[in-house]
Design a protein around this nucleic acid. Structure first.
Lengths: 203, 203
DNA sequence: ACCTGAACACCGTTCAAGT
DNA sequence: ACCTGAACACCGTTCAAGT
C-alpha cells in the first residue's frame, strides 16, 4: 500500500547489463536496452543507479567479486606446493574469462576519464594471487611476481577474447607455456642470469 | 579550378582521431570533434572514411604499423644473443605503450562486433616477436613462446595504462621480473619441471 | 517512493544543394 | 569532387506529473 513499490532492483539492473555486455558488447548496454530487460523505462533506472558510468562500473565490480571467489575456491581445492597453486589460480582466472569474456576484458581496461576501475574489489582479487606469488617467489618478491603473473594471465585472456591468436597452433599449449615459464622463472630455485637488472626490493 | 579540392585527407583525419583518443579517451573521438580538428564539418569526413568504426580501426592499424617499425628498430640495434633481444623487444613495446597508452590498449581490445581488430597489421607486428621467440626457445616452440611474451607485455602495459598497479612498489621492477622470468623459463636451458603439461608441438 | 512521457542536448549518418 | 546545412534516428539524462 506504499505509493509505488519498486518494480526492479539494482541487482537486477546489473545482471541485465552484464547479459547485454556479454551477448552484444559494451555499445549494446544502453539505458533503454537495460531498462527493457528488467521491465521498466529508461528514466526509472536512475532511481537505482546514478548514471551509465556507475552501471558499467558496477558490472565490473560485481565481476571482480566473483573472480575473487573463484580464485579463492581454486586455491582451497589445490595442493600445498607452490607450482600447482600457481597453475590452479591461472586456470581459474582463464576459466572465469572464458565464462564472461567481455566482462573480464573490462577488469583492467581504461574506459575513459569518467570510468575509473573499481579499486577496492580488484584489490581483493589481488590477495589470492599475492598469496601464491609469495609461496612461489618468497615474501620479499611476492608483489612483482604477482604482477607478472596477473599481467600474463590477463593479457593472454584479453587477446584470446579479442581473437588475436590466428596463426594456428594450440592456444591451450601457449597458455601452459607461459604459466610454466613463469613458474620456472619466478621460483627461487632458478636464479637470475648474469647482467640481470633485478635488485632486491622489498615492497 | 577543379570543382572542390580536398580540404583534408584520410591521414589528417586519422591523426586527429589519434590525438583525441590519447588526450580524452575513445568516447571523445566523435565525428564532430575529429572534423573540427581538421577544419571541416562532420559530414565531410564520410568522403574520406566509411564510418566511425573504420576510423577507429584505421587508428589502430596505423599504430600497429608504427609498433612493427619500433620493434624492428629495437632488434636492429640489439646484440645477437637471445636474452638481450627479448629484453630489447619487450622494452620497445613498453616504450611504445607509454607514448601512446590509449592507442596501445586498443591493439588487442574487443571493441564489439562491428569493430574487428586489424589482422594484417598485427600479423606484421608479430613477426619480430616470433623471431626472438624462436632464437630463445627454438623454432619448434617459437609460436607458444611468442604468444606468452606478447600476452605478458600487452597485459602488463594495459594494466599500467588502466592504473591497476596501486599497491606501491616498483612498476619497472615488476616488468623486469616478468621479462626475466619468461626468458629463464622459455629458454631451452631451463627444462620443464616434472609433471609439466607441455608437449612437443611444432607449429 | 518509484515509474512514466515529454523534452533537451548530443551523436552518427544520409542527402540534396552548393561550389 | 568535395563541402555544407538540414534532417533523422538514436542515446543519456532531467523533470514535472502520475500513482
Amino acid at each position: 500500500m506504499s505509493p509505488a513499490p519498486a518494480r526492479t532492483s539494482r541487482d537486477a539492473i546489473l545482471e541485465a547489463a552484464r547479459e547485454l555486455l556479454e551477448e552484444e558488447g559494451l555499445d549494446a548496454v544502453t539505458m533503454a536496452a537495460v531498462a527493457s530487460r528488467v521491465g521498466v523505462r529508461a528514466p526509472s533506472l536512475y532511481k537505482h543507479i546514478r548514471d551509465r558510468a556507475e552501471l558499467v562500473s558496477g558490472v565490473i565490480a560485481t565481476a571482480a567479486a566473483e573472480l575473487t571467489a573463484a580464485l579463492e575456491h581454486a586455491l582451497a581445492t589445490a595442493s600445498a606446493e607452490p607450482a600447482p597453486r600457481v597453475r590452479a589460480i591461472a586456470s581459474a582466472y582463464r576459466a572465469f574469462a572464458h565464462g564472461r569474456p567481455r566482462t573480464a576484458a573490462l577488469l583492467f581496461a581504461d574506459l575513459g576519464p569518467e570510468l575509473p576501475i573499481p579499486q577496492a574489489e580488484l584489490a581483493r582479487s589481488a590477495a589470492p594471487v599475492l598469496e601464491v606469488a609469495a609461496a612461489l617467489a618468497g615474501e620479499g618478491r611476492a608483489l612483482p611476481a604477482a604482477r607478472a603473473l596477473t599481467a600474463f594471465v590477463h593479457g593472454f585472456t584479453s587477446m584470446e577474447t579479442a581473437g588475436a591468436f590466428r596463426l594456428g597452433g594450440g592456444v591451450d599449449e601457449a597458455f601452459a607455456t607461459g604459466v610454466e615459464a613463469l613458474i620456472a622463472g619466478l621460483g627461487p630455485a632458478v636464479s637470475s642470469h648474469p647482467g640481470d637488472p633485478q635488485f632486491a626490493r622489498p615492497s
